[in-house]
Amino acid sequence: MNMDQNIILEVKNLKQHFPIYRGLLQRQAGAIRAVDGVDFSVLENEVLGLVGESGCGKTTVGRSILRLYDPTDGEVWYRTAAGERIEITRLSQKEMKPLRKEMRMVFQDPFSSLNPRRTVKEIIGEPLIIHKVARGRAMEERVAELMLSVGLDPNYMDRYPHEFSGGQRQRIGIARTLSLSPRLIVADEPVSALDVSVQAQVLNLLQRLKDDLGLTLLFIAHDISVVEHISDRIAVMYVGKIVELASTEMLLWEPLHPYAEALISAIPPADPDIKLERIPLSGEVPSPANPPSGCIFHPRCRFAQEICAREEPHLEEIKPAHYVSCHFARELQLRGIGGVA
């Protein structure tokens, strides 16, 4: 395996299945394969964008990595600040606790993810107390510093979340995430609940914090224009698997997987002179409880051959640092945002 010193997080064959119970005896009748064998690495101080449509498992990947779920299978290797590589999927919650200072999450909805009965000071300061980093006056000083760093007025630290707008609340959430000086942040749809003019404020803030603090971000979102703006590399997920992973430019301008191509072609370009020419996708997204045989995308793929229904493709490096999971990735001529690739 790649022992690159720059890798802060390495995910190997990660699986997260959720059992389905049925009947009077509540027997296990199957499983939702929300994440079904995902491999990727995150480099230090990069932004890796994770995109896909609802139900593709992108949020579950983020949560499994932070051990908000117990992964069904696979490995997650994290390199600590001290340079030690730790496999975290089998750690107990107690063993995880010191790592939780370094690996943190920003949630989507700034309305439901902040406790309405706590003041901003309590919300941002809580992790400091839990991890016994600071309390009392020292905690207050740290909270003020954090509020300043995300562009909030520290004079408002005794106010409650409802007194803030959506964008400000997301800043509160980010300040809380930053309180323990994390190294890796999983940001799950951090701007999708915000108005467009406010989205830009939060995106610019994340970008600045990443540069100033040397953070690494796993940025999960469905809006590819937003992901393009902030990400160094992008991974595209479809029904629990990564189908393509490459640098932002390569993935968008020269996609190699038919699903990535269709996804990119469906984005309305925000320019009336460019007409949207989407590549039609037949049928519906399959259920992760009952995924199709072979390649998960084959029932909807316009290039599907007999082998696609029979054999599952694996994520392979087709071009340098361009990983694709498709039997025909070397042969297909696909279209990126520039038109014909």
């Binding site: 964008g167 467009v196 003019s197 830009a200 393009e228 703006h229 301008w253 990119i264 370009p269």
Partner: peptide, 21 residues
């Protein structure tokens, strides 16, 4: 100016609208 446009990475700096509604 405040929305990212696909394919304009690097050419476009997002300029948020100051303040809030």
């Amino acid at each position: 100016n405040s929305v990212p446009v696909l394919g304009r990475k690097g050419q476009k700096v997002l300029i948020p609208i100051a303040g809030m509604v």
